[in-house]
C-alpha cells in the first residue's frame, strides 16, 4: 500500500519523525506493531526496512476540521536504508506493508495498576504509542494505570521523546551511560532501584489482579537484563524485539528468536513476546 509522506523532519542529530495520513483501508495499528517499508523503488537497498509505529492518532484536519488518522514513525539513521528514508520529502509516496506483527498484550497490561516502560535507545519508538494507548484508550477507568517510563541512552543527546512522555502524564526516569543526564549507568541498573521488591512467594505476577507489569524495547542485552530483573521481582514483562527482516510476513523464517518452544518468528509471532518465553544469550 502506498502512503504519502506528510512530513519527515529531524528531531535532533540522527533522529527523525516521519508522519503520514493513513489512506483508506489502512488498518488501525496496535502498539508494538511495525510497518515494513520499501525505501526505494529500485533494488538498492533491496529489502524492506521494518520500522515500529511510534504513534497513531485521530486528528482534526487544520483546514476542514475533518478527522484524519495520522501515523508516525520515529527512526534513527543507522545505515543506507534509513539514510535514504531521511532524504524523502513531503508528498513522496512510499510503499508499506502493514501494520504487521503481534504487539503488546493490552488486555494483560491494562489490568495492571502500574506499568513500567523501559526504553533503551530507539526502544522509545513503539513504547510511546503504548503509553498513549494506555492513557487514552481506557473508557471504563479514566485514569488508567500509572505509567513509569525509564529512558536509557549513551548520553543526553540520545535521550529523545522525554517531553512527549511527560506530556502524556508519565513519570520519567532517565539514565545515561556517561552520566550527562539523570542516572549514570545502565537503565536496567536504574530500574533495579525503583522497581518494587519481590513479594514473598510471588513467582509470576501473571493473573494477579493489578500487579505491576514491565514493557520494554531496546538492545537485546538490555532486554535480557530486564527479563532477569522481572523474574527476580516476580513481575510479568513483555519485550519488543528488533531484527533485520526478510518478508515481514512470517514466511521466510529469516528473523527468529530462540524461545522455550523453539525458534519463533519475530515478524509474525512477535515482535512482542512474554519475556519468560525467550531463551536469552543464544
Amino acid at each position: 500500500m502506498k502512503v504519502q509522506i506528510a512530513s519527515n523532519v529531524f528531531l535532533r542529530d540522527k533522529y527523525l519523525l516521519l508522519e503520514f495520513c493513513a489512506p483508506a483501508g489502512f488498518a488501525m495499528p496496535e502498539p508494538g506493531q511495525f510497518l515494513h517499508m520499501r525505501i526505494e523503488d529500485s533494488f538498492d537497498p533491496l529489502l524492506r526496512r521494518p520500522l515500529s509505529i511510534h504513534d497513531a492518532v485521530w486528528q482534526a484536519h487544520s483546514k476542514n476540521g475533518r478527522k484524519k488518522h495520522v501515523v508516525r514513525i520515529l527512526y534513527e539513521v543507522v545505515g543506507k536504508g534509513t539514510a535514504l528514508l531521511a532524504e524523502k520529502r513531503p508528498l513522496t509516496q512510499i510503499d508499506v506493508l502493514g501494520p504487521l506483527g503481534r504487539g503488546f498484550d493490552l488486555k494483560k497490561i491494562g489490568r495492571s495498576r502500574c506499568v513500567y516502560i523501559v526504553a533503551g535507545g530507539m526502544g522509545v519508538a513503539p513504547l510511546f504509542f503504548l503509553a498513549r494507548r494506555l492513557r487514552e484508550g481506557r473508557k471504563e477507568n479514566a485514569r488508567g494505570p500509572k505509567i513509569v517510563v525509564f529512558i536509557g541512552a549513551r548520553n543526553k543527546d540520545h535521550i529523545i521523546r522525554e517531553k512527549e512522555f511527560k506530556d502524556l502524564g508519565c513519570e520519567i526516569h532517565v539514565a545515561t551511560e556517561d552520566g550527562s543526564k539523570g542516572f549514570k549507568g545502565r537503565v536496567t541498573d536504574l530500574l533495579k532501584t525503583i522497581l518494587p521488591p519481590a513479594t514473598d512467594g510471588a513467582v509470576s505476577a501473571d493473573g494477579q489482579e493489578g500487579a505491576p507489569v514491565i514493557c520494554a524495547c531496546g538492545p537485546k542485552a538490555m532486554l535480557a537484563a530486564v527479563a532477569a530483573l522481572a523474574q527476580q521481582r516476580g513481575l510479568a514483562a513483555q519485550v519488543s524485539l528488533e531484527e533485520f527482516m526478510g518478508c515481514g510476513l512470517g514466511a521466510c523464517l529469516g528473523c527468529v528468536i530462540r524461545t522455550v518452544s523453539g525458534y519463533r518468528r519475530i515478524c509474525h509471532d512477535g515482535p512482542v513476546f512474554d519475556a519468560e518465553e525467550i531463551i536469552w544469550g543464544d
Binding site: L46, L47, E243, G246, G254, C255, V256, Y263
Partner: peptide, 19 residues
C-alpha cells in the same frame, strides 16, 4: 530447528540467507 540467527543479511543487489 534451523540455524542460529542472524539468518539473513542484505548485500549489494542481493541477500544472504542461512535458514
Amino acid at each position: 530447528e534451523g540455524n542460529r540467527p542472524p539468518r539473513i543479511c542484505e548485500t549489494t543487489g542481493g541477500m544472504l540467507n542461512a535458514i
